[in-house]
Design a protein around this nucleic acid. Structure first.
Lengths: 120, 120
DNA sequence: ATTTGTGGTTACCATTAGGTTACTTGTTTT
DNA sequence: AAAACAAGTAACCTAATGGTAACCACAAAT
């Protein structure tokens, strides 16, 4: 069974906290990466899978579905054979890009080497 | 056994992606909330637990420990009885605050009501 | 003598997120 | 006749995350 419901953390947000809300949407291992990868482009499923090879197609399909439910990406299906499906960010999804970029540049200042060295 | 190691996602970052790196540090259910709560203040353990009542003290202790390992918060212990421990953001942790604020205001525009309504 | 306050720890358990492999569809190429 | 392509599904499994409840040390207050 494919379970693509709303993230329980989104529904049951004890503090009704906007940070929790945001994290319940873009949190998780792959969602921010996917959003960041798509960026301003329009990408097909297979292309995304190729850019992010370490994600399985099951998980990719699932994450895309959830992102669509939250209105961050739009899915366009062409009825051809073999099938073609294109993904792009919605305007709402694009408002996340600058935040993700900041997060990325922040992440660059916290490299693994640095932290592991500092702990040693 | 208390398992406060580095997040496996931080170590095993397949794409060596800064977004992944950032999310492996501040991702998770409580870390961004804790950071945001502390903000510019200095808070004691009990006070934090009171502000975020839905977190258990075990989990809170654990998250604080991890945030300390990543150099985002500093812990100051007073050898008194009963004990007193104060937490505050490090300068590195404070650089996250503006990003968290943006995330929060973004989260405010994506309320549960709105999304559930749009789906109906 | 017992309770209270503080900042945790321990052992145990439940849920969830994520991963693996195999399979489907219908048309085109070998 | 069989294999390849594209975009997934289905069934199953493991690891990580988070949660619960009980307990600890030590001093001060009741």
């Amino acid at each position: 069974m494919v379970t693509t419901n709303l993230n329980p953390r989104f529904i049951d947000n004890p503090l009704n906290c906007p940070v929790t809300r945001a994290m319940s949407i873009i949190g998780g291992k792959w969602k921010p990466i996917i959003l960041n990868c798509i960026g301003d482009r329009t990408l097909r499923f297979g292309k995304l899978n190729q850019i992010i090879p370490s994600i399985s197609n099951k998980v990719l399909a699932n994450e895309l579905k959830e992102l669509e439910i939250f209105g961050l990406i739009k899915r366009k299906e062409y009825t051809e054979m073999p099938p073609r499906v294109e993904y792009a960010l919605t305007s709402s999804g694009k408002t996340l890009l600058p935040i993700l970029h900041e997060l990325a540049s922040w992440g660059n200042t916290h490299t693994a080497k640095k932290i592991i060295k500092e702990r040693a």
